[in-house]
Every structure is written in C-alpha cells, then in structure tokens.
Amino acid sequence: MSLKRISPDDVRHVALLSRLRLAEEEIPPYTDVLNSILEYFAKLNELDTSSVSPTSHSIEMRNVFREDIPQPSLPVDKAIANAPEVEDNYFRVPKIIQEM
C-alpha cells in the first residue's frame, strides 16, 4: 500500500488547528519529521486485520456509570487558583471576537 505523504500545507493546517505558530523555515523540517513518523506507523499496514472487528477501546469494559448524586465541588479559590488572570471569581481571557 502506497503511503500518502504529508505536504508542507498539511503541516501549516495542523499547526493552525493546534494553535502553534511556526516560522516558515520550520515547515520543511516538521514535514520531514511527520513523514518519518507516518512511515514508522505504516508498518502496522503489514498486519492482516481482515478478521478483527473495529474497536473504540483497548479494554473489554462497558456500561460504566455513576449515579446522579451531587458531590462537593471545588472551593472557588481553588478552582481559579491556576488562572493567569481573574476578575470577581471569573477566569479573565482575551476577548473572543466572533463576528465580522
């Protein structure tokens, strides 16, 4: 099976999705690295999995639940302790602009 190669544009797209700011000269090395990772995993293609049904999980466990009974939450000062910025017990973040 021939392997689809990762292009520099794929790297730019993945960087955008991951919110990573890559300099233009970083694109070629990352393209090479990601391609070599993909080639390594391509080894799995050598296995015959035609008789194995797809799974979503590595362990054979199912129907794990908790009952709908309230448990104590964190005290608010602990909840916001790691926030870089706080205002009136809210997390303060740069404004998100949604519209044009």
Partner: peptide, 24 residues
C-alpha cells in the same frame, strides 16, 4: 434535568455564583 453534570458530580443548579460548581 439531572441533578449533576454528565461526567462528574458537580451540581447543575441554575444561578450559582461563578465557578462554584466546578471540579477537576
């Protein structure tokens, strides 16, 4: 209309003070 959130035991009561019904 559950009493707790879908994946943790935090209360779902409406109108609580900010960030008082949260957990890890």
């Amino acid at each position: 209309a559950t009493k707790t959130k879908v994946f943790c035991g935090c209360s779902t009561a409406f109108g609580a003070a900010p960030n008082t019904q949260v957990c890890p």
